[in-house]
Simulated assay, not measured.
Amino acid sequence: MYAILKKEINSFFASPIGYLVIAVFLLLNGLFLWLFKGEFNILDYGFADLSSFFMLAPWILIFLIPAVTMRSFSDEKKQGTLELLLTKPISLINIVLGKYLGALILIVISLLPTLLYVYSVYELGNPVGNLDIGSTMGSYFGLLFLVAAYTAIGVFSSTLSDNQIVAFITSVFICLVFYVGFEGIADFTSSTFTDQLGMSYHFKSMGRGVLDTRDIIYFLSLSIFFIVLTKINLSKIKL
């Protein structure tokens, strides 16, 4: 697993992909949060609060993460190296975890510079330090779990086709269904249970600053579910 993980990380940063992902994520967040006028602009918000960032980030990541993961297995299929990889003396689950963790680490690295937003808002508060640290840290934890689930969905989608664009579109669609799809259905049917099936419900719950084990179990279960589906899909490939 570690060999594949190392290979994935090296491949990300040996090409412009890794740097491009980090740059695009930070640039889009920076423009919407600090420069463009609108509901996401922190300076126009009037409060020392990072809720704009946590509303915006899931939407940027819903497209950015599939762009990272779409090549995980689809590229191996297209180049004909997947069969070779599967014949190596390494278990199928370790291959999946190596690919998954490689993409996950890249996205987490992309999130690290956003901690500067916390410091900036902390200093801009009146008085200085007028920032709800508990809620902010809870939202960051929620974002990490959300990223983990998005990445699992993206890696799974990359096993469905040898076409990276198809893998990208499939991943975006599934992520949208889980992030806002169930919430939309719940609004239409007034069903609390349906709302709780969506990522948005649990992400917002963690953003209140209280880490409920139900929210953590939800994200972990969703991530594990798609990792297992990825393994099952790969096991169907005839060598």
Rank of each mutant, 00 (worst) to 15 (best):
M1E: 01
I4V: 13
I4K: 00
L5W: 10
K6T: 03
S11V: 02
S11D: 14
F12I: 01
F12K: 00
P16R: 07
G18L: 07
G18R: 07
Y19V: 09
L20G: 12
A23V: 11
V24M: 09
L26G: 04
L28G: 06
N29Y: 02
F32G: 02
L33D: 07
W34T: 13
F36E: 07
L43R: 12
D44N: 12
Y45A: 12
F47E: 13
F47P: 00
F47R: 15
F54P: 00
L56M: 14
L56T: 11
L56G: 05
P58E: 14
I60Q: 13
L64A: 13
I65N: 12
I65V: 15
P66G: 10
V68G: 07
M70A: 07
R71D: 13
R71K: 14
D75W: 03
E76G: 00
L82T: 01
E83R: 10
E83G: 10
E83S: 10
L84P: 02
L84V: 14
L85A: 11
L85G: 06
L86Q: 07
T87E: 06
S91I: 00
L92P: 00
N94C: 00
V96S: 03
G98F: 00
Y100A: 01
L101A: 00
L101E: 01
L101C: 02
I105T: 04
I105Y: 02
L106K: 01
I107S: 04
I107W: 01
Y117L: 15
V121T: 14
Y122I: 03
G125N: 10
P127I: 08
P127H: 08
G129P: 05
L131C: 11
S135C: 06
S135V: 13
S135Q: 15
L144F: 14
L144H: 05
A152T: 02
A152F: 07
I153A: 03
G154K: 10
F156I: 00
T159H: 05
D162I: 00
D162M: 09
I165H: 06
F168R: 06
T170F: 11
S171Q: 02
S171Y: 01
S171D: 04
S171C: 02
I174R: 03
I174N: 06
L176N: 04
L176E: 04
V177G: 06
Y179I: 06
F182S: 09
F182A: 09
G184M: 10
A186M: 04
D187W: 11
F188N: 08
T189L: 11
T189M: 09
T189A: 04
S191E: 05
T192A: 13
F193T: 14
L197M: 15
G198M: 09
S200N: 14
Y201E: 06
Y201V: 06
H202R: 09
M206G: 05
M206W: 03
G207K: 06
G209H: 09
L211N: 04
D212S: 14
D212H: 13
I216Y: 08
F219V: 04
F219P: 08
S221A: 14
L222Q: 01
L222P: 01
F225P: 02
V228K: 03
I237W: 09
L239C: 02
